[in-house]
Amino acid sequence: MDLAELTDEMRKQASRNVKLGYKVKFVLDDGVIFWDGSESTPEIGNEENGEADTTIAISAENLEKLMKGNLDPTMAYMTGKLKVEGKMGVALKLTSMFAD
């Protein structure tokens, strides 16, 4: 999937879940996906300069696997495929939302 497809898929997943309550920036190889879950309706886009509570660095390929449930988030973190800056609890909340 390219950046636009990943962003669209993330919008779909966000709409199926409860309010996240935080702002998360996904830093990919070819761009950024910014999830503003601080409002009741999440806004997901490709804004690079937004302030985030948590920043997750991951490849586009691994993000796709994570969203499809084909990559264990704990193993990805432990093997360096996923790096987290900021609030770890937010990252854990997100991974449980992807698993639903």
Results as ranks from 00 to 15, higher is better:
51 E>H: 10
66 L>M: 15
36 D>R: 02
19 K>M: 12
20 L>S: 03
53 D>P: 01
45 G>Y: 02
68 K>V: 05
39 E>N: 11
45 G>A: 07
27 V>M: 06
58 I>E: 01
41 T>Y: 06
43 E>C: 08
26 F>W: 02
62 N>M: 07
39 E>A: 11
15 S>T: 01
26 F>S: 04
15 S>F: 07
62 N>P: 01
46 N>H: 04
59 S>D: 03
42 P>T: 10
68 K>E: 15
40 S>T: 15
23 K>W: 01
40 S>E: 13
63 L>V: 00
26 F>R: 03
50 G>E: 07
54 T>C: 13
38 S>A: 11
31 G>A: 10
34 F>P: 01
37 G>A: 10
44 I>E: 05
34 F>H: 03
42 P>D: 11
58 I>D: 07
22 Y>L: 01
13 Q>L: 15
39 E>I: 03
45 G>C: 08
55 T>C: 09
20 L>R: 04
43 E>I: 09
41 T>K: 14
18 V>P: 08
23 K>Y: 00
57 A>I: 05
33 I>F: 08
18 V>R: 09
27 V>Q: 05
24 V>G: 05
31 G>V: 04
22 Y>F: 09
33 I>G: 11
47 E>W: 04
60 A>Q: 14
44 I>P: 01
41 T>S: 09
48 E>F: 02
54 T>Y: 06
20 L>H: 04
70 N>F: 14
19 K>Y: 04
40 S>D: 13
43 E>Y: 10
13 Q>A: 15
32 V>S: 06
64 E>Y: 12
50 G>M: 09
58 I>K: 07
54 T>P: 03
28 L>H: 09
50 G>W: 00
17 N>Q: 14
19 K>T: 12
13 Q>E: 14
67 M>P: 15
51 E>V: 11
60 A>Y: 03
35 W>Q: 06
44 I>Y: 08
37 G>H: 10
15 S>D: 06
66 L>W: 13
62 N>V: 10
64 E>V: 03
57 A>C: 06
35 W>C: 07
66 L>Q: 13
30 D>L: 13
39 E>C: 03
49 N>S: 15
29 D>P: 00
25 K>C: 01
38 S>W: 07
62 N>T: 04
18 V>W: 00
20 L>I: 09
22 Y>A: 14
32 V>P: 05
40 S>I: 11
63 L>W: 00
68 K>A: 15
27 V>L: 06
